Computed example of a mutant assay.
Amino acid sequence: MLNALQVITTVLVGLMVGVEFSVAFVINPILNALPEDSGQLGRSHGGRMLGALMPVWYITSLALAAAWAVAGWDNPGTGLVVIAAALLIISVIMSILLLVPINNRGKTWTPENRPEDWKEQMNRWDRFHYVRVAVIIAAFTLLVAALAS
């Protein structure tokens, strides 16, 4: 049972890292290069779509990592899982305090109602997102290392 929990947790966090990495380094650069209002409209749509999915994914990943740490408390590598769970907590806190407020504004924007500083707000979101991606990559790396220990 513990083996299944370890694999499911690692795969789920790995997929989350892949999605968030793709948003940071593929999707948003593509959207930023689109002409006129297309990029802003794409980011608004992405904010609505991923804004509904990602909270569930982050919380589920954290819950699974915590369950792994509890279920495998006496196993080698549990310390790595605990640190990974702590990093996932940091990513959730970052999301709630820094990224979600900007996303909640941005997902409602259209070319007609967006604020003057919308690009600056999107750039701020991107900077926070880069940090969050680094945090979840570190968490994923620790989970993989825990599997190998």
Rank of each mutant, 00 (worst) to 15 (best):
L87D: 05
R124L: 15
R132T: 08
W73S: 15
R105N: 13
N104M: 15
L87G: 06
A65H: 01
I136E: 03
L97E: 12
V81M: 07
R124K: 14
V82T: 01
N104C: 05
T78I: 06
R43S: 10
S44A: 14
L2G: 11
I93C: 11
A86I: 01
P76T: 15
S61F: 01
Y130C: 12
V133L: 07
P111T: 02
N123D: 15
P111I: 06
P35G: 04
D37A: 08
R124I: 04
A85H: 04
L41D: 10
E116G: 14
S61E: 12
V82K: 08
I27M: 00
N32T: 09
E116I: 08
P101L: 13
A69P: 01
F25H: 08
I96R: 09
V92D: 09
Y58E: 13
P35Y: 07
V26C: 00
G77Q: 08
S38V: 12
R132D: 02
T108L: 15
A71Y: 00
L15P: 02
F140C: 09
A138I: 10
M54E: 13
P76L: 15
W73E: 13
L2E: 12
L2D: 07
V70Y: 06
T141M: 13
L2K: 07
T10K: 00
I96N: 14
V100Y: 11
M49W: 10
R132A: 07
D37R: 03
F140L: 11
Q40N: 05
G39M: 03
W57V: 03
D74R: 14
T110L: 08
A33R: 08
L87F: 10
V23Y: 03
H45G: 12
G14E: 01
M16Q: 01
I30L: 00
L34Y: 07
P101K: 11
Q40K: 09
G72Q: 07
G42W: 03
I27A: 00
I102R: 10
N113K: 09
L5I: 11
W57I: 02
E20R: 01
F128W: 11
N32M: 06
L50S: 08
N75K: 15
A146V: 04
T141W: 07
I89M: 09
S61Q: 09
H129E: 10
A146E: 04
A69M: 05
W68Y: 13
L50M: 12
Q121H: 14
R114H: 14
M122K: 02
T110H: 10
G46T: 00
